[in-house]
Design a protein around this nucleic acid. Structure first.
Lengths: 326, 326
DNA sequence: CTGAAAGCGCTTACAG
DNA sequence: CTGAAAGCGCTTACAG
């Protein structure tokens, strides 16, 4: 509660001006004599000086804070993305403000406004709605923005996404190698974003005539759908799920209905979150390169990375496709 | 990129002073004549004025930002907590800075310093290490802090936790009602924090002589432990797991080793995250009142809630204990 | 009810 | 290499 030490306090103690103290603390932009620098550093240390970032932000128009907007914070795939964004940001000595859109375009817009009002230096958007180019608001305010995983294709802001087609082709090839010819696909509620791309790739490469199964991205919905399909005798023998959350729901539904995975149903999921290694049975997945994606997005924000080729997922074979690691 | 509108711009346009504009924008602290207020509001709207929060923060020494430190952001239980904290904060019109300690006391200390330097108005700490009373640093800086779920018992900052003993007793009673006498317990790596309390409650109420099983809070570890126990013929018939992550690992290990849940092994977990409803088989849990906990913690920060009784978990029976909802 | 002005703690031309 | 000073955009006593 004791009043904080300011630059002026340090300057007084070191017998110099605030300008010089600032130069020492920030290592620039002007040189300082070695002896003076020592005195300043000593004074700062003795006083326990900590710069007031708010004052610095007001003056230099940069807060050191980046906003992350998440389509849905409770989905572990997005959680993993957030985690890697935080790490990449920490390496740039930036703090992360987080907001959860909960799959709502309106909440997403609201968050963008709030974050801009908070004077974030930049925005990373894992969009809840690829049709709504919210990055425009940031652009208008002169704040750089980048979409991660999902964003409007026609917008001005860059979109960092994985090579979704590649992942699907890996899954298709692997299931075929297991001898499956009819490959079903559990898509999202609509064909927006990366999941739409995954659905279309499956269609083109594996099942031109088939119609995709659909559910929301919640475990509950995929679980319920699975039970319904099994009850109606309409469950396919081999299934690719667009996301891990859906795969987990499928496993739950199959278990509840007494259907054996992989004996009666082979499953491959396309996210590959860490949790997929410990389902019952363990999920075969294409593991999306979330760390690389996060790093690329943050790099773009700090002008360090040129637009790079989309990172590719790796196929991780486990039990659910019919492989048996034992 | 066009230069932002300031208070002064609005004042000029409305033909008044910046003081009056400020009074209008903030609805106080001085009254303003209705006519003047109208002019100001009109000018602000026409200009598209948005207050600069940084300047406001420097002057009023309050940023509208609260820091949340998470023991481990990738654990869905903590994720759910974070989600509810964000919601409670949004209701108070506060933004949330988030940091992940990754179970490291050192990273946690570092985050506290970073957040204090960023001038957060308050701190919510889901502590990675109950022995390290990091809230003291905040207190010294005059920043209110509250621990959530886990924190030092002897510290000055309040700790908001659920009634852990109650949850354990519910689980014990339910397993007994299923006819189980020997109840094993999967605890954490040590007895710190809420999990320690859960372990001791199990010990006292169900198995005074027994020794608890232990693993870290990762699915991988609980999975591996389970396989080892099964391979060694040492798997108990009824198990309470301290956390959902461990329960999920147990289910995965049991499935991999061909052990049937609940026929050969009954399981109850003590977190009750949303995901527990869709495991294979579905987990019976005591659902911790995370929303109430988050709300209580945030309430304490804003001086709205007196220390309240610890919220209690509810038992949700599903398949893994031997109940069959069908 | 309103206005002129100080000041929050920094950064950065500018002058020396 | 260093210092005196302006100014970032607000809020808030203070005087009227």
């Amino acid at each position: 509660m004791n009043k904080p030490i300011t630059l002026a306090d340090v300057a007084r103690r070191a017998g110099t001006s605030t300008a010089v103290v600032s130069y020492v603390i920030n290592d620039g932009p002007r040189p300082v004599a070695a002896a003076t620098r020592e005195r300043v550093l000593a004074a700062a240390a003795e006083l326990g000086y900590r710069p007031n970032r708010i004052a610095r932000a007001l003056r230099s128009r940069t807060t050191g804070v980046v906003g992350l907007i998440l389509a849905n914070a409770l989905n572990p795939y997005f959680g993993a993305l957030a985690e890697h964004v935080e790490q990449a940001l920490a390496e740039h000595d930036r703090l992360m403000l987080i907001g959860n859109a909960g799959y709502s375009a309106e909440r997403q817009r609201h968050l963008v406004e709030r974050f801009l009002a908070a004077q974030v230096d930049a925005l990373v958007i894992v969009s809840a709605d690829a049709d709504d180019d919210v990055a425009r608001h940031a652009e208008r305010a002169g704040v750089p923005a980048v979409y991660l995983h999902n964003g409007p294709v026609a917008g001005r802001a860059p979109v960092v996404a994985a090579d979704n087609e590649h992942a699907v082709r890996e899954a298709v090839a692997h299931l075929r190698a297991h001898g499956h010819h009819d490959l079903a696909f559990l898509a999202g509620p609509d064909d927006a974003g990366p999941v739409g791309l995954r659905r279309r790739t499956w269609q083109d490469s594996a099942a031109p005539g088939a119609v995709a199964l659909r559910s929301t991205y919640s475990r509950a919905d995929a679980d319920a759908l699975t039970r319904r399909l099994i009850a109606g005798g309409a469950m396919p023998r081999a299934l690719i799920t667009a996301t891990d959350e859906q795969a987990v729901g499928v496993l739950a539904g199959a278990c509840a209905a007494g259907l054996a995975v992989p004996a009666d149903l082979a499953v491959i999921s396309l996210d590959g979150t860490p949790g997929s290694a410990h389902t019952a049975p363990a999920l075969t997945v294409t593991r999306q390169p979330v760390a690389a994606m996060a790093r690329q997005a943050v790099g773009l924000l700090f002008g360090q990375a040129a637009p790079a080729p989309a990172p590719r997922a790796t196929l991780i074979t486990r039990r659910s496709c019919g492989c048996d690691p034992r």
